[in-house]
Simulated assay, not measured.
Amino acid sequence: MSDIGQHSAQTYLAYDFPLLSVFWSVLWLFLWVMWFVLLFRIIGDIFRDDDLGGWAKAGWLALCIVLPFLGVFVYVMARGRNMGRREIAQARAQQEDFNAYVRQAAAGGGSGSVDELARLSEIRARGDITDEEFRRAKELVLSGHGPAEHPGSATLPASGR
């Protein structure tokens, strides 16, 4: 019978682990995760900051790696106020780059190829160029080999007129 008593004393049941211990364990886990998030944001901010020189970046990075708790605390106290501003400036620059890329892609890779085709169509409708000249000029515009600034001038093929 003593053998059964020893076996049951070694097993832990759910009610053997108090609720307050669960709370503290979850809190400590949350704080560790938040600290690592803060550490990586600080490392990213060190590399993002254009005001810091190379040696200053190396010094802050060494401080945050060698003495992580002290380094993070000192960095947040010394440079934490502008971390958000630098992050917002980087996000705006990325958004502007993305918008410029979308505008370029929407324009067909070239600047104003849609406008060029519309002008060529108008010139053909007026009768200033033939259908063959329009076809060749359209191929030039669509291939990206120099959209004509003045359709009907130097970039259009000679038609013998």
Rank of each mutant, 00 (worst) to 15 (best):
C64W: 04
G84N: 06
A89E: 14
W32F: 11
G59C: 07
A148Y: 04
D115Q: 14
I42P: 10
Y75W: 03
S111T: 13
F40D: 10
F40Y: 13
A125D: 15
F73T: 15
R81F: 11
I42N: 08
W35H: 04
Y101H: 02
V66G: 04
G84A: 11
A62Y: 11
W32Q: 09
D128C: 00
Q104R: 07
D51G: 02
A105P: 06
W32G: 05
R86N: 05
W28V: 11
L120Q: 14
L29T: 14
D49S: 15
M34Q: 04
R124Y: 11
V76P: 01
Q104K: 05
L31Q: 14
W60D: 02
W55Y: 02
V114E: 15
D97W: 10
I123C: 02
S143R: 12
S143M: 02
L67R: 03
D115R: 12
A78H: 04
L27H: 00
L29D: 12
L70F: 14
L120S: 04
A106H: 04
V114W: 10
E139I: 00
E87M: 01
R85K: 10
A118H: 06
V72M: 04
R85G: 11
R48F: 01
H145I: 03
A100D: 15
I129T: 10
E139T: 04
F98E: 08
I46R: 01
G127F: 03
I88Y: 02
I65R: 11
L39K: 12
G71A: 05
L38K: 02
D97E: 15
R119I: 10
A62V: 15
V33E: 00
L52C: 02
V114R: 13
M77Y: 10
H150D: 09
L38F: 06
L39R: 12
E149K: 06
L38A: 12
E133P: 00
R79Q: 11
F73W: 15
I46F: 08
A107P: 05
A137L: 01
G71L: 01
W32S: 03
L67C: 09
P68A: 03
G144W: 09
D49P: 04
E116T: 14
F47P: 00
Q95S: 05
G53W: 05
K57L: 09
N82A: 12
G44H: 11
V33W: 13
E132N: 05
P147A: 10
F40A: 02
A100C: 12
L52A: 08
G144N: 07
A89G: 09
L142I: 03
W32P: 00
